[in-house]
């Protein structure tokens, strides 16, 4: 469900499959575990492998944004599939400047 990569102070998490309330809890635990021990300057969530998401995906991104602020790092979300972009647009996350 999740592969992570760490290089140059950047932690990249490749999210794979469907994001709903059920899987978001598991993804969150894994990502936060890695971020807490590595304390990266940047957490990069790569959405290219995401085949489905509901509003739980927005909660996941907002939560990681806050989490990274707490440890003094930043968040970036990359490769959002077109079909899912609508959800991001509704959420106002665009204003945080984390989407690429």
């Amino acid at each position: 469900m999740l592969k992570t990569e760490y290089a140059n102070n950047i932690l990249t998490a490749y999210i794979d499959g469907e994001i709903d309330h059920d899987s978001a809890v598991k993804i969150r635990t894994q990502v936060d575990g890695a971020a807490q021990s590595l304390k990266p300057r940047l957490l990069c969530l790569d959405f290219s492998g995401v085949s489905f998401m509901d509003s739980s995906g927005i909660g996941l991104v907002m939560g990681r944004y806050r989490q990274m602020k707490l440890i003094g790092g930043a968040l970036r979300v990359v490769n959002i599939p077109d079909r899912m972009y609508r959800l991001f647009a509704m959420s106002g996350i665009e204003g945080l400047g984390v989407l690429r």
């Binding site: 939560g63 509704m90 106002g92």
Partner: peptide
């Protein structure tokens, strides 16, 4: 209402009904 949630501490975004409507 968009962004209204009673469970913010569980990382809910308050977007469920807005998504259903859209």
């Amino acid at each position: 209402e968009p962004l209204y949630t009673t469970a913010p501490e569980e990382e809910r975004a308050g977007l469920g009904f807005a998504v259903m409507q859209s």
